[in-house]
Design a protein around this nucleic acid. Structure first.
Lengths: 160, 160
DNA sequence: AAAGAACTGTTCTATTTAGAACTATTTAGA
DNA sequence: TCTAAATAGTTCTAAATAGAACAGTTCTTT
């Protein structure tokens, strides 16, 4: 049987290790974003929409957790820059359908290939991990993220 | 032998999983910070200084990666709130010695014990992991963070 | 089908953040 | 030892961010 204190120390240590990865990752994200003329929210939006090609703005908000004012402005910038198309959803004039333009798709691919960008750098970082380690990591991360997400929605059932 | 493309997909998947943890973690960090009247940088500073009790502002900058203007202002707020003490380093009038006040130490402990704060929530999240999983996670995170940090300093040898 | 509640997104404003210029001090080197 | 370069931190300013109020639309209830 392990003491409450031990459990606390272990989780603190883990939290620190995640925080550490986070800080380092954010440095690269920030740099990659700026180098491509994007804000961090904008970068985040593009990477979120990338695998789907198109999304309702609402779901984008749910995925990215960006406050809706931030989201709205960030999207606006992306539309102006020509990376995203925006139009009202057919049959629901409240919602906004966002989709990657062709230029936008190419832009994302370019970003992902940039030497010294987040993507390439992270890929190198991950290369030192074994196949098993990767799988374990994916599993653990998913487990943690899922738990946190559940806790968050369970608490903040209120407006935002 | 595995294709370049497979490696890319795997790393993308991993990057997404970290980004996912990151987003969820940040929601709680943000919330915890605000509830205690702190900005995110200020929260970050307190958590960084916590295990050492005192630090030179310079090293704080190196640990947190905060731009020095942000750091300066955040520290100033913490000093004004009475959580930190600040004085010139003995024998070097450029550097600033920062240390937790007694109030500050208590404050941090309080934060860490808050139900629904990052710390307690993360602890619950981690409870579902096995002992082995924790160790693996720590190792992998350390490996990744270390790599990223090395890459960053190797590139950005310039000023900031 | 009218009234009110809920929803989606935008706009407005205040706050936070961060680059750039600056001040003060220390270190290096000629 | 004098000058130039480097360092540590602060201040100033512009930009990014996010809460609050808002506008328009849809859904619910009666």
């Amino acid at each position: 049987m392990e003491s409450e204190n031990q459990r606390f120390m272990r989780s603190t240590q883990l939290l620190r290790s995640f925080w550490n990865v986070q800080k380092n990752l954010m440095r690269f994200v920030q740099k990659t974003a700026v180098e491509n003329g994007l804000s961090v929210p904008q970068y985040s939006i593009l990477m979120t929409i990338a695998p789907h090609k198109e999304m309702i703005q609402k779901s984008l908000g749910e995925k990215t957790f960006l406050p809706k004012s931030t989201l709205s402005q960030a999207v606006d910038g992306l539309v102006q820059a020509g990376w995203l198309n925006r139009q009202q959803v057919e049959g629901n004039r409240r919602e906004m359908q966002l989709s990657l333009s062709e230029k936008g798709e190419i832009f994302i691919k370019t970003i992902q290939l940039q030497e010294d960008g987040v993507h390439q750098t992270f890929q190198s970082a991950v290369e030192s991990l074994t196949e098993r380690q990767c799988e374990e990591l994916l599993k653990a991360n998913l487990q943690i993220a899922t738990y946190l997400e559940a806790r968050a929605t369970e608490q903040g059932e209120d407006t935002k």
